[in-house]
């Protein structure tokens, strides 16, 4: 088997991600519409911004897909002229990297709810890491800071874990993912009979 991603894998990942990029773009106004309510309610919906990574990974199931997907989705959002501007691109890179690292820790062998939820938490940690330096988050009062982190982690498990898993499962049911899976041993056995 050839090493790395084939053009097919890359294009499918990017197209899925750009579809999510459109969602990311719409999510921006929603996010800052919720934000002025205070108490970090907005953080509960933050997890949507990591979803491309896990959905793409669950569909393609190869190394590097989660990272590529998150970068592609954020650059799609960026090129559409996101309100957050340049931030989204760099956040996308860091979030994708952290999600990829979590998936890598499982050696790309597991495609279940636990792994994608953990990948979501990984991406959330990546985003918190960026916010810490960019947004002086350490200078929030302690209870407020904890609330922010808690809400963001919960949100990322809901969206990046449960929702992504739900979407991937529904896509499996449509049969479209069979296009992308390499022929398995059973397929060859079936031919040999």
């Amino acid at each position: 088997m050839k090493k790395g991603l084939k053009l097919t894998d890359i294009l499918v990942t990017i197209v899925i991600s750009i579809a999510f990029g459109i969602v990311y773009k719409i999510w921006g106004p929603l996010y800052y519409a919720v934000k002025p309510f205070g108490l970090h309610i907005d953080q509960l919906i933050y997890g949507m911004w990591f979803i491309a990574a896990t959905v793409a990974f669950l569909i393609i199931r190869k190394a590097g897909v989660a990272f590529l997907a998150e970068v592609a989705a954020s650059s799609g959002e960026f090129l559409m002229g996101s309100e957050f501007g340049l931030e989204v691109l760099l956040y996308g890179v860091v979030q994708g990297l952290f999600a990829e690292l979590v998936i890598m820790a499982f050696r790309y062998k597991r495609y279940d709810l636990l792994v994608v939820s953990l990948a979501g938490i990984g991406a959330a940690i990546g985003s918190i890491f960026m916010d810490y330096y960019k947004g002086y988050m350490g200078d929030l009062s302690t209870w407020n800071f904890m609330l922010l982190i808690g809400f963001r982690l919960i949100g990322s498990v809901i969206f990046t874990g449960f929702m992504a898993f739900g979407i991937a499962k529904a896509l499996e049911a449509t049969g479209v993912t069979n296009l992308l899976r390499p022929a398995s041993k059973e397929d060859y056995d079936a031919l040999n009979q």
Binding site: K6, L7, L11, V15, I16, A19, L171, V176, L179
Partner: peptide
């Protein structure tokens, strides 16, 4: 959300797959 996003995504994947096969045939990689 489910009734809209699943057909949209599955159609995206099908289309992307077809385009990718054509692009590979034309040595875009």
């Amino acid at each position: 959300f489910k009734f809209t996003s699943i057909p949209l995504l599955s159609q995206c994947i099908r289309r992307a797959f077809r385009i990718a096969v054509a692009m590979e045939a034309k040595r875009f990689d």
